[in-house]
Amino acid sequence: MGEMSVLLVDDEAEFLEILVKRLKKRKVNLTAVTSGEAAIQMMKESPADVVVLDVRMGGMDGIRTLDEIKKIAPLAEVIMLTGHANVEVAMAGMALGAFDYLIKPVQIDELLYRLQDAFKKKSLQEQRERSQGV
């Protein structure tokens, strides 16, 4: 497995800043954007392995962004991270293929484990497709 690339998407700049700082301290290779639209653009230009996506955002919301990301990069894994615990939204996200749906506040190690799990899943899927000659 190579190095994992992570894209963080959250419209709360303050929260994003703290998260970036904490993950960088743990040597995670990441990019951060503050809107769903910017995330889509980023995934088109340089797709990340794992996306951490806020659910409630101004403009394109998390669920729509997830849907778009899965169209652009089907193997990319998306972890929804939200302060808004809503079973229906969570189910919608999971049905669209989100890897996980985490509720803030989340321990940074917990997030890191989920990132590692998601990345491993993606890598294994890629290996499998390669070995099957897909």
């Binding site: 615990a85 969570a90 189910m91 999971m94 996980d100 509720i103």
Partner: peptide, 20 residues
């Protein structure tokens, strides 16, 4: 209710992951 909703969401998400 914040706790109730968060607990429900967490169990539901994990049950769905388990099925998946």
């Amino acid at each position: 209710m914040t706790y109730v909703k968060a607990a429900c969401t967490a169990v539901s998400v994990n049950a769905m992951k388990i099925i998946r």
